[in-house]
Design a protein around this nucleic acid. Structure first.
Lengths: 180, 180
DNA sequence: TAAGTTGTTCATTTTTATTTGACTAAATCG
DNA sequence: CGATTTAGTCAAATAAAAATGAACAACTTA
């Protein structure tokens, strides 16, 4: 699985310093943090692997490269790469430069509100937006209903409109509140 | 699948009125409502079938029995029964008495906030509660860290505490806002 | 420039969530 | 009471989501 190469016995003074070959087991603190963030990200419908990565970075005193994460979390390269891509996309992790290392190193951004604003932007807002067009469509369909059905349906559509508007209004407020 | 029995030709005056044997196809309005609520309930991590049931009831002028839902939504008995059980559990649907019919009939409760309060109660609150104990645990683990790591970790734990408290405070406010 | 390193993509596999429908219990009917 | 209707349960089937790892591209470096 890992492709370890044994260093030839003659290489007493290797020109490049080899990195640690074995990854440390997770500390109790790391396990707690990972656990915490797994359930946190689940709240936003994100996969476990996202929580694992973020949790590990959250308590890491120094930037962590992807291969170290993979090893310590026993996670595939694909999951790590995709997870970091997503976390980067909404600013939950940042890359950090580490001198003399070609690999990208990652740190957590501690503004947890990023998860919420990401959720609002990618899940809630689109839903609210398409909902507006749908409501118009539904009201037009309602018009064609026989009188009695129409009168029964009208107040329900009003309720929907009400919630739609409430949602639209809430979004900026919540966003503002979260950033504070 | 359905077990239809043909009525014997002699039964011109049946003692009990047989119900309609064929279910009507969904109307355009029903399809819109179902679509709307499927994506709405997904927001709360609920399965599609929940959205289908609630969407259908939302635009039904009269109470609907379970077998009618099953037919019109082409949904299994299990999904219908379990879905209604869940929706009932947080008050999103109510049962209505219909004279001369032994079956339970269901209507939608139009207070959409029930979905949100259900989510808060069953997903958010438990997470916040267990989070409190976890934070204590993490802080105790942090104490045992070497000086330098500890000083790097401390502000992160403070951030976590901050969000935890913010969350605890927000819950009642959100709840109040939703009901209004 | 050849060999090695790092990171991405995506078809396949694995895992998890949801749905199905046979079975059953309970209630009502004749 | 026996037949029928209604609705709940749960093991098995199916569908959906997530993880894996091989293949590849883009760099680096020796």
């Amino acid at each position: 699985m890992r492709n370890l190469r044994l260093m030839p016995a003659t290489a007493l003074f290797p020109t490049t310093v080899k990195r640690a070959l074995k990854s440390e087991a997770l500390t109790a603190l790391e396990v707690e943090a990972i656990d915490l963030f797994i359930s946190f990200v689940r709240l936003f419908g994100l996969p476990k692997s996202i929580g694992e990565i973020y949790g590990l970075l959250f308590v890491s005193p120094k930037p962590v490269p992807m291969d170290a994460m993979m090893e310590r979390l026993s996670m595939s390269k694909g999951a790590a790469s995709q997870g970091l891509k997503l976390l980067r996309s909404f600013g939950a992790v940042k890359t950090a430069y580490v001198a003399g290392d070609r690999r990208d190193h990652y740190t957590a951004d501690f503004e947890l509100s990023r998860f919420a604003t990401m959720f609002i932007k990618h899940e809630l807002q689109p839903h609210l937006d398409s909902g507006l067009a749908r409501l118009d469509r539904m009201e037009r369909l309602m018009e064609k209903l026989p009188r009695d059905q129409k009168s029964a349906t009208a107040p329900r559509m009003a309720k929907l409109r009400h919630w739609q508007e409430k949602g639209q209004m809430m979004m900026p407020l919540i966003a503002k509140f979260l950033v504070s």
